[in-house]
């Protein structure tokens, strides 16, 4: 048994134990009857949602909302973050504001988005956008502030323009930490969009969760939540893989 496998066995054992306790509670019919379905029932419902193709249009809607919001947040967050990181005075003025707002619940802004952008996709995109913006801008600021000044001197010494300095020095040297911010932002964008859907919507993963909840279709509700978690984990995993590939270009 080496250092890696032992913790892994404990982790697997824990997950298994939790599932067994869950099943035991369901089978015993003593607690939570009718509101906690058996794991098999949940799996069956999840399989049904996939095999009938029922979930895919909703999945696409949520991904669309999350990606658009995320893309806007990334452009804005990276640009602002690098500006703040490069200019210490600006950073001292605005970073506290950003940190304060980062610690507020973004969903509270949702009714404003609903009124201004309507109850369709746009308001969820805005939710995804504000949710993703903060982790991205915070990471970009720290990354840009941490650039070794010598690299900028090198660029200047060979007569690079400021645009060239931005694309050839600032972007590559902040790539990894900014990408970490983007990974966190992507997760936040999904949560933001889905929370919006849970509140007011007529499509998306959040919509099918809350529909199942309202009509007391309990196994379906669990299944949709499970699939949503699976999606979030996959996106996170994919971005982690990407950042491992980027590591080659950074340090």
């Amino acid at each position: 048994m080496n250092r890696v496998t032992k913790p892994f066995l404990i982790q697997a054992g824990t997950v298994l134990l939790c599932m067994m306790i869950w099943e035991a509670i369901v089978e015993s019919r003593l607690l939570f009857e009718g509101i906690v379905p058996s794991i098999f029932e949940i799996m069956k419902a999840a399989w049904l949602q996939i095999s009938t193709g029922f979930i895919f249009p909703h999945l696409l809607v949520t991904m669309y909302e999350a990606f658009v919001g995320f893309a806007l947040a990334a452009c804005l967050g990276i640009a602002i973050g690098i500006a703040l990181g490069v200019e210490p005075f600006l950073r001292r003025v605005f970073e506290p504001l950003i940190l304060y707002f980062a610690a507020t619940p973004k969903i509270i802004l949702y009714p404003i988005f609903l009124m201004m952008l309507g109850a369709k996709f746009e308001s969820k995109m805005a939710m995804a956008g504000v949710s993703a913006f903060f982790p991205i801008v915070i990471n970009a600021t720290v990354a840009a502030a941490g650039i070794d000044r010598i690299f900028i001197k090198v660029a200047k010494s060979v007569g690079a323009s400021s645009f060239q300095t931005f694309t050839r020095v600032y972007l590559p040297s902040t790539l990894l930490p900014v990408f970490t911010g983007m990974r966190l932002g992507m997760g936040a964008a999904f949560v933001g969009a889905i929370l919006g859907e849970l509140k007011v919507s007529n499509a998306g993963l959040g919509f099918i969760i809350i529909q199942a909840f309202n009509h007391f279709r309990i196994p379906e509700m669990y299944a949709s939540i499970l699939l949503t978690f699976f999606l979030a984990a996959s996106v996170n995993f994919a971005m982690t893989l990407m950042s491992a590939r980027l590591r080659r270009f950074a340090y």
Partner: peptide
């Protein structure tokens, strides 16, 4: 041309790409 006191080559560029930097600019 200047060679700096600190280590100053770009860690995200290969040897060749580092040397090409100025020409590229």
């Amino acid at each position: 041309g200047i060679v700096f006191q600190q280590e100053s080559i770009f860690p995200w560029r290969s040897t060749l790409e580092n040397i090409e930097f100025g020409l590229e600019m």
